[in-house]
Amino acid sequence: MTDDWRQVADRVRNWGRWGADDQLGTLNYITQEKISSAARLARRGVRFNLSIPVDAYGPQSAHGYRRNPVHMMTLDGGDADMSRALETQKTGGGAQEAEIIELWKGPMRYTDDFIVMPLQSGTQWDGLAHVYYDDRLYNDHPAASVTSAGAMRNGIEHVGASGGVMGRGVLLDVARHCGVRRLEPDVAIGPNLLDEVADSQGVAIEEGDILLIRTGWWTHFLDHRDGATWQKAAPGVSWKVAEWLHERRVAAIAADNIAVERRTPEIDNHVLLFHMLTIRDMGMTLGEIWDLEALAQDCAGDGVYEFFLSATPLLVTGAVGSPVTPVAIK
């Protein structure tokens, strides 16, 4: 069993499929024709924001290398008299003071802010430089091509520069199909269950689709506001779903949990095996921590589980992932 996943890796590996220089992977399945067809799915003009809030109250509290975003003001409403104070002090300060004095000579005042955050602390895409094994990234690039300066290969900026991620989105509401608000901890969603859900919803998975998986697990965080517990034992797809996605030529997959896949390893000492197969071997971008609740409610109401989806990452040069504000339009 332990070695079975390497046989799957050989079968799903897309290295060279779109050329030796490709850095988009399965997003190549989203053609102009696919986007044009998907745009016609926006029939009602109803929009669903699938992002969680970017603030200090998110789910990143379980480990040291990721933290919730920190938002800080550089200028606020209490700074309205700054120019007067600077001019009065005659400090002979630098260009910044001179700029503020000049800008605020008249009645105009402004506020300004910045944010410090791990790029993958909230609703986000995992890029193709995010996961590797055996010292190789997607398309046989060396893991050492990701340096302290960023990813020299497979950086997330290639996705943004290509026009982003948009096309036909399909929601598979696994939790609702199972008759529960959310799946139990440690549930592994296998290919057969995904087929059952698609059949029951009357929706077909097509080449180039962006597949959304609802486990209902985001409601666990909303109920308890405990990021550590929310991340631990989260349900998700089985690593065996990688081959299912490969056969259907799915472009990308996202879910409402921490890692798309089941958080507890299905094979001992093989953490995030689904990540290894999809990102490193298939070249598939993964979306994590998406809020699918309102969209799922609407889909259940009208029986339509397909929609136009736009989810373009930030154009951060050399980044291995990116925050995203996905919008589904029905």
Rank of each mutant, 00 (worst) to 15 (best):
G58S: 10
Y305V: 08
I156W: 04
R168V: 10
S145C: 11
S310R: 12
L103A: 03
C178A: 10
E196Q: 13
S238R: 15
K90M: 07
I115A: 12
T31D: 12
W125P: 01
N154A: 04
T26P: 01
E261R: 09
I100D: 01
W125R: 05
A9C: 02
G190V: 11
T26D: 00
L245N: 07
I189C: 06
V241C: 15
G106E: 07
A254C: 09
Y57H: 14
E261F: 06
P53F: 06
I30R: 06
A234W: 06
V165D: 01
W239D: 11
G106S: 11
T91C: 06
R66I: 12
P59M: 13
L272P: 00
D113R: 11
T219I: 13
Q23T: 11
M276Y: 08
G287N: 03
L75S: 02
A254M: 10
D79P: 03
L273E: 00
V187R: 11
I329D: 11
E99S: 08
G127Y: 01
G150L: 02
I100E: 02
N269D: 00
A42C: 04
Q23G: 10
K232I: 03
T74S: 15
G58L: 09
G179T: 05
M1N: 12
D173Q: 08
I52N: 01
D135H: 13
G179P: 11
V12F: 12
R168A: 07
T285E: 00
G283M: 01
V203A: 11
G208D: 03
R84H: 14
D22V: 07
D21L: 14
R17D: 05
W239I: 12
G77K: 10
Q32I: 02
R182H: 14
N154F: 07
E99N: 04
G77L: 02
Y57D: 13
F114V: 08
C299D: 01
G160I: 00
G64F: 12
W239S: 13
E266V: 11
E196H: 12
R280C: 01
A151N: 03
P118C: 09
W217P: 14
A129Q: 02
G303M: 03
I115V: 15
D55R: 13
E99R: 11
R248M: 09
L292W: 05
Q297V: 14
L137M: 07
F274Q: 00
P326T: 01
P323A: 10
V8I: 15
E102F: 07
E102W: 05
L86N: 04
A259H: 14
P323I: 10
D223P: 06
G301M: 06
L309G: 15
N68W: 08
F221D: 08
L194A: 06
L50Q: 05
G169M: 13
G216R: 13
W104I: 00
T317E: 07
R214S: 13
G190E: 12
L277M: 02
I329T: 15
T325K: 13
A149N: 03
W18S: 08
F221I: 14
S148F: 08
V146M: 03
A294Y: 06
T219N: 13
R136C: 04
G127E: 00
A198S: 13
S61P: 01
K34Q: 12
Q32S: 09
H130E: 05
D4V: 13
